[in-house]
Simulated assay, not measured.
Amino acid sequence: MPPRRAITGRSQEPRLRFAEELRSLRAERGLSLRELADVAGWDSSTFSKLENGHTLGGPEIAQALDQYYGTPGLLLTLWELAMADPTQFKEQYRRYMVLEAEAISLWHYGVSRPPGLLQTAAYVREALAAGGLRGRELEQQVDARLGRRVLLESDEPPPFRVILSEAVLRNSLRSPGDWREQLGYLAQMSERPSITLHVLPFGTGLHGLASTDVMFLRLLDGRTVAYAENDVWGELVEETGRVERLYRTYDAVRDLALSPAESRKFILRMLEGMPCEPST
């Protein structure tokens, strides 16, 4: 039986515990990063970042290393604990961004904001500024979010189904002109063949996503993953059973929503009801 490792202060942090185990297992085999890359099939730079705690990679790497080192489930479990750590929100979101760009179909439910893929520049800027971004960093993030829309503007865009709580359409921007532009953009995008937009009106009762935004991505390999978040928490969900439970909840919410045609009329009525901007 191998000796039990001492639990250090560092080891109690999920991300660093995962990195520590990777370094230890490689050292026991007497491998360089380049040698590990040769046998495991990933770049040595990837393993360097994993062992330094700069990234967590994906579950497929943890599973491959478990198989190579003969530690069934150990590294995958440590990876899952690290990903579940609330401090890893940005890491999970970065991985989600990579998967979104590869998705062949998408489904979204929004509690209080439209999905980033359907936000205008003015909406993006106000939302990010409300989160504390300023100056150059704000402009960089605005450009990055708007750049994601290329996914929907390709010659063969992936099918995208969106359910918006009525609260999304009531939570207006400070500028009436900017808000009119955002509502108009939603109505315009809802006409695209690849986009199906539903509105979930007030008064439909409680449901399982009442406080959670969620995006489902179907990937080229047939898997579906989900990213669920609220104002203080975000999680990339890849385990099949959990994704399936989330999707059943999403499906139930869709049954409560207006049809695409009724939803577009709903948005257009809101636009018609907005006061006209004063002439200059």
Rank of each mutant, 00 (worst) to 15 (best):
T87M: 10
R113Q: 08
R149H: 12
E100K: 09
G116D: 07
L99C: 03
A122W: 11
I104G: 13
R145K: 15
R161T: 05
R125K: 10
I61D: 12
S105F: 12
L146T: 01
Q141D: 02
L152S: 10
E60T: 00
I104F: 13
G177T: 11
D85C: 07
E60A: 04
A82C: 04
R149K: 15
A82M: 07
A103F: 11
E139G: 08
A121L: 11
L173A: 00
P86S: 05
V162A: 04
P115L: 05
V150F: 03
R174C: 01
E80L: 10
P176A: 00
P59S: 09
L56T: 01
A130I: 09
A64H: 06
L152Y: 10
D178C: 12
F89Q: 12
V168F: 13
D178P: 15
R94K: 15
W79H: 13
P59F: 02
E156D: 11
L169H: 11
S165T: 00
S112W: 09
V124M: 05
W179N: 08
L76V: 06
E156T: 04
A101I: 00
R170P: 14
V142W: 01
Q140W: 12
L81Y: 06
I104K: 15
E139I: 03
D85K: 12
E60V: 00
G135Y: 02
Q67T: 06
P158E: 00
P159G: 05
P158K: 08
L138A: 06
R180L: 14
G58I: 01
A144Y: 14
R170N: 13
G132V: 04
R134F: 09
A122V: 02
R161N: 09
E80V: 00
Q141E: 05
P115H: 12
L164A: 07
L164Q: 12
E102S: 08
D143G: 03
A82F: 02
I163M: 04
R94I: 03
L146Y: 02
F160G: 02
R125C: 02
L65T: 05
G110S: 14
L75Q: 06
P114W: 10
P159R: 14
L56P: 05
P114E: 12
A127G: 11
E153K: 15
L146I: 02
S165H: 11
